[in-house]
Design a protein around this nucleic acid. Structure first.
Lengths: 181, 181
DNA sequence: GAATGCCTATCAACTGATAGGTAGCTATGT
DNA sequence: ACATAGCTACCTATCAGTTGATAGGCATTC
């Protein structure tokens, strides 16, 4: 299955946004990344908000696919797998979660992009909520919120401190706190 | 004590960065905010990295001052005061922590700004570490990291979801998890 | 007379976006 | 079988607006 130009553009955009932010990324950057001209990028994504929306949309659905592949029969192993999804981004790609930076920039971003970012966080919370309810974790609503916040914040603090071990430390502490809240 | 132009510029910069990010803020924005011309902003802060560094520096020292005023004799009340510092930003100014967004944008920012952001997080961790050690909290290192990450991430998730109550929910869950990790 | 704190004017580079052209492919009608 | 029409996916060229930054002028203050 060959990769379409649209996907190549989104790949380049994701890399740049996760590295430096949405407003720091330009159509010309993306054009040179994928080997076409900026006018051709506009052909695939008419405006920048269009691109942002498609970007977060794809990120969310890809993340959802990975969530659905996690074996949720054991609480501990499920959480380990969940944390690994976040950890991968930090270690392999040397970038943080797309929605962490989109969320941080939120006030200055187009509304449609904000809605998609909001949806990403909600999806994460709901997945955790279901997991916690099925494993009889106390205060499942509060706990799911805390885990998402700790992991997103953990990526930012660890990335900013240039200390990847700190993310693992935070993630472990977050998971250890579960069932005791 | 009259406010200097330098401080007025930093005030405007802080508001804009916390709202939309460092790369989304321009010298002309700041100039019009404080009623001078962009060339005059360059007089006070020669380059953008200079401004960024001064901004995070001031933010950190102001935050430190507030930390030092917190009564730390009681663990619970001290934590409540600490959380209130974060909560204020979200509720009153309708913006997130300066270092949350500076940390999120980190990879695309000047190195000197990154160092200052890193220092802010470290200061927070050390303040909590001292608090936890003096109150015999278990795993004080892990716990202090977790609290900082949860609060920074909580601001992003709550702000992005346009749900301020969610921040309080996350903060309460984070604090409740202490002493049980 | 020198330093401070602003100004006007200007610069090259970059931004998102548009207009209009072109090569290649495909579907249709005769 | 073959011309025609239309679509896709790019291109060049250009636009007005914005960006960080600089040079040089002009008051006011010390």
């Amino acid at each position: 299955m060959p990769q379409t130009m649209k996907d190549k553009i989104l790949d380049a955009a994701e890399k740049r946004v996760r590295g430096a932010g949405f407003s720091a990324m330009s159509f010309r950057d993306l054009a040179s990344d994928v080997g076409i001209k900026s006018a051709s990028v506009h052909y695939h994504f008419p405006t920048k908000p269009d691109l942002g929306e498609a970007l977060v949309d794809r990120y969310t659905s890809q993340f959802k696919e990975q969530l659905e592949q996690i074996d949720t029969t054991g609480l501990q192993t499920a959480l380990d797998s969940y944390v690994a999804l976040y950890s991968q981004a930090l270690v392999l790609d040397e970038t943080i979660c797309l929605c962490a930076i989109m969320g941080a920039e939120a006030i200055g971003l187009p509304k449609n992009v904000n809605q998609k970012t909001k949806a990403f966080f909600k999806m994460n919370r709901l997945w955790l909520l279901d997991l916690f309810q099925r494993h009889s974790v106390q205060n499942p609503e509060d706990t799911s919120c805390l885990i998402v916040a700790a992991l997103e914040g953990g990526m930012i603090v660890a990335s900013s401190s240039d200390d990847r071990a700190m993310f693992d430390q935070i993630a472990k502490a977050a998971i250890r706190s579960i069932a005791k809240i």
